[in-house]
Design a protein around this nucleic acid. Structure first.
Lengths: 243, 243
DNA sequence: TATAAAGCTTGATTTAAATCAATAAAAAAA
DNA sequence: TTTTTTTATTGATTTAAATCAAGCTTTATA
């Protein structure tokens, strides 16, 4: 039976696995429908709703892996001078804290952006359960492999981008691709965070970000209304990204 | 018994597992010494030596995972205009092609930089074998988790670096950390490739790279002789990276 | 609803990196 | 070894992004 717990914030909604919109994401971990009930009791897989709270923080004991069910997370790192750097985002279907398998402590922060739902997989229980169910391990291997590809592609999208324009274009395309996995819309994108956070993440100033967004709109590549982006010329955007 | 095969190049040396310098890297896959012989026959794990040849290429069928035993690999992507972009490097102890687990085809090129040794794990055989040996799967899970962390850290080291100086400093530190896992020297680093390739990877011109290397030498942060870098002021370099 | 606060955009100037161009050094070939 | 080729460094100019600064929106609060 699925148990749902409440963390750190007052206005928490309880969501069980059966009504979770991201069932397909969790399904691999369940290793087939017939075994859901077994998994639920053995794995203590729970749906947790957090509101703008950290899932975990730097140096905290790494004792669980999380899969994002709904909403977005930002990952941050605190530099020696105390400045916060946004090192990535996580969307439904992606893992957070998978390092836990081999690391005693997390070394970054995972903070919910708005209301989110995650599945928590306790490491101890995962190990116990894995011995009994090889299918579970195969699912985890597949999930980790997918996460690996996502990370490599994310890396590829930001590395070797000399101009701010190509970097932003590549970032938008990367977000679009990752969103496509849980949303139907191929041409629309909701930015999970404000300009400041995106600028921080990409390593330039909010002014530069604004200017480029304006330029992209003038060129007819996209239209942007607050945090809602509509892609108008995908090939054009790809051209900008690959340069 | 370990079998070693020869690929694509004439001057290939045969190396078996017992004499491989990177045994500790492969050990997790072997799931304990007592089972080495079983693994060798079941998994067809082979040491392959390649010389400047692609391990695999874009769009090729993804049927194996590789672990680097010795030497370095560069990963590249061909842009629509046909330009080659260096999207990363892989060093001993790291995985290549782990995407194979969930992707039908590779979507990047893995090219040996000089002479290298890799362990090839055939996917079909891995699946067969996994059913018989849960420990093997646990090892793979651990390897994938480590690779995940490596990728995230690599990503973190290049993202949000506004100046070319901080980007290069972060790149050197990342290389240094990854080298430390299989070399004793904490302060020395051998660049696996020339300036052009590094500049391509980091997204700026070879002239800029040269200038920054010169600047770092003038500041006494490091000394560089061809491809050999010696770190002289690690905290100083970290200061440059975190800015 | 009015007012304050936060977030976003645009302009003018300064600074950092690209580009163009010429050497210099190292590696490969004759 | 000497010549050729490749690779790396340094200089002068142009271009792109940071910075400084002001206005504009949107959201939050009284």
């Amino acid at each position: 039976m699925t148990t749902c717990i409440k963390v750190k914030q007052p206005k928490t909604k309880y969501i069980d696995c059966d009504s979770c919109s991201m069932q397909p994401v969790c399904l691999p971990l369940k290793a087939g429908k017939t075994e859901i009930s077994i998994m639920d009791s053995y794995l203590s897989k729970r749906n947790i709703v957090t509101i703008s709270t950290p899932l975990f923080q730097e140096k905290e004991k790494a004792d669980a892996i999380y899969a994002v069910c709904s909403g977005s997370f930002k990952l941050t790192e605190t530099s020696p001078e105390g400045k916060e750097k946004v090192i990535g985002f996580r969307f439904p279907g992606e893992l957070i804290g998978e390092d836990a398998i081999h690391t005693p402590n997390y070394n970054y922060n995972a903070v919910a952006v708005g209301n989110t739902t995650v599945c928590r997989v306790d490491l101890d229980e995962l190990n116990e359960c894995g011995k009994l169910m090889p299918e579970l391990q195969l699912s985890l291997i597949s999930l980790l492999s997918k996460q690996n590809s996502m990370l490599r592609e994310e890396f590829t999208s930001v590395v070797a981008k000399h101009t701010a324009e190509s970097l932003l274009a590549a970032f938008i395309l990367n977000m679009l691709k990752r969103n496509a996995q849980y949303q139907e819309t191929e041409s629309k994108l909701h930015l999970p965070v404000g300009r400041d956070v995106i600028a921080n993440h990409l390593g330039f100033r909010r002014e530069t970000l604004s200017r480029i967004f304006s330029k992209f709109q003038q060129k007819g590549l996209l239209s942007i209304q607050a945090k809602d982006v509509e892609i108008l010329d995908l090939p054009g955007l790809q051209d900008v990204a690959y340069n």
